[in-house]
Write a protein that binds this DNA or RNA. Structure first.
Lengths: 225, 225
DNA sequence: TTTAAAATATGACATTTGTCATGCTTTAGT
DNA sequence: ACTAAAGCATGACAAATGTCATATTTTAAA
């Protein structure tokens, strides 16, 4: 199993501020897991007792709403941690994490993180910075949800997904999401998401190659009202 | 001017974890301010160079959307800090803060907070906990915005405001917000907010005493679909 | 106190979005 | 390869929400 000290992933998250000793200690008690696409990493309301460090793959964090829909709150890529918020607040998870890809993650037990948080101020400050970043992003999502149309939100989501999760050699978005996933990110009915994507296609803003979506005119997408 | 060491407000926020010495030092460089209702404490994009500790009053944190509306993201009461997120990220503010009440705040310069964050892990951890709490609330708002109707959101807002900001002796909500404020919290057009409030009134869910709103049937408000 | 401006209220209508029904297409499992 | 299930697509219609116009009431400033 890989050693945390040597893992290049750690440079992308707060773990980079841990000392060599701390990393060695964590390396000794962490667990590596492979998670298949569609698999649930943890559920809403579950006690997670640790954090996951995403070595590879992408997952969504979502929350079930009263009307039965599963609203996506955030997507997490390689390099990021999941579960920190619940750990810090000492609460069970407020979100569900589901793999959108085949993933590789390391699970680090709560006790290790807690003891580092109490002893290594640089680490704590880094965690604080990461959380401040998440909070800013969440604020932006609130404003978008409140003030933008479904079309605008879906257009922005396409641009976001392309930018953050990359493209295949033929220019298609490499992350394959179902129409239902898009609907749950945007916060609309699946049929509405399908309709808007069809419209984008008719207007030449996007095209599809099999199940993959390609952005043909990102400025056009940005201009949507 | 009051001394931070003796200020009872500090127990409600992360400042409680500062040592006596740290508090004395902060006390020496803080500034007390009175802010009148409607006054802007800081604007979006402004460098704030410190945090405000709210000694009294309530303010809204909002963000201007592209369509010109000022979406309220969070409301802040006595005891809470504002400006921490930007300070931690070392960015200019992503939100505007506006007093909804006459307020009393203390301004603490950035350098002081930063040095405490670097030296006092308990303080940093407390800041982290507060921010984790804010993030959870923001996640909940995202889900509500995406999945609930304007009626539901407005009903919940009324209950929230009553619960968190209290009532007058006659049972009316003590915080007076304009219909436009309600619209900007809920994320809807002012006319829509007015219409929904009128409907609530007709249905006996709320009543009004002058400009004040009184919740008459909170279970009814909760049951709205 | 008077008066202009702002806030509230409501109607009429347009637009957006959701819901339900139905059919087609793809996927996955035997 | 066959078949059931899931996903995608689209029409028809309903419901929610936004926009614009206008009137009334309240507030604040001269």
């Amino acid at each position: 199993m890989g050693k945390c000290e040597q893992c290049i992933i750690k440079q992308f998250n707060a773990l980079k501020s841990l000392t060599k000793d701390e990393l060695v200690r964590i390396s000794g008690c962490k667990t590596s897991k492979t998670i298949k696409k569609g698999e649930v990493i943890f559920e809403e309301g579950e006690s997670i007792n640790g954090v996951y460090c995403v070595k590879d793959g992408i997952c969504k964090l979502s929350k079930l709403s009263e009307n039965g829909k599963d609203q996506v709150v955030k997507m997490v890529v390689k390099g990021q941690l999941i579960g920190q918020r619940s750990l810090v607040s000492n609460e069970s998870s407020n979100l569900q994490a589901t793999a959108l890809n085949d993933m590789e993650v390391c699970f680090i037990p709560k006790s290790e993180i807690i003891s580092d948080l109490q002893r290594n101020p640089k680490f704590t400050l880094d965690m604080l910075k990461d959380m401040a970043h998440d909070l800013k992003e969440a604020d932006d999502v609130i404003v978008d949800m409140a003030q933008k149309s479904v079309k605008q939100r879906l257009a922005e989501t396409l641009i976001y997904v392309e930018k953050n999760f990359g493209t295949n050699p033929d220019g298609t978005i490499s992350l394959m999401l179902s129409r239902e996933d898009y609907a749950n990110i945007v916060g609309t009915a699946t049929e509405s998401a399908i309709r808007v994507l069809s419209q984008f296609k008719k207007e030449g803003l996007i095209s599809t190659v099999g199940k993959y979506i390609k952005i043909e005119n990102s400025n056009g997408l940005r201009r949507i009202e």
